[in-house]
């Protein structure tokens, strides 16, 4: 299992949290995820055999949140 934290552009709308978490929860291969509202980060742990980090970034991006970096 892999853990990654993605830095997004500033999240300000409260419903973003639910949206991003909801999307990740429904994504195959993602074990757990948490949106850090104040730092605008998303912490994800996922199964690398089922989903790649690039794909996660891609999906968050498609939802309308630009991913600025990861670590």
């Amino acid at each position: 299992m892999t853990n990654k934290t993605y830095q997004l552009e500033t999240i300000s709308c409260p419903s973003c949290i639910a949206k991003i978490e909801g999307m990740l929860k429904k994504t195959e291969g993602i074990v757990s995820s948490e949106v850090l509202f104040n730092t605008s980060r998303v912490r994800v742990s996922f199964d690398e055999a089922k989903i790649t980090s690039d794909e996660i970034r891609n999906r968050i991006g498609k939802l309308g949140y630009r991913v600025l970096g990861e670590k």
Binding site: C13, S15, A18, K19, G22, M23, K26, L63
Partner: peptide, 11 residues
């Protein structure tokens, strides 16, 4: 974008 994942947000 959100509805594609079955999420109904304020948008």
């Amino acid at each position: 974008g959100a509805i594609r994942y079955g999420i109904v947000g304020i948008d």
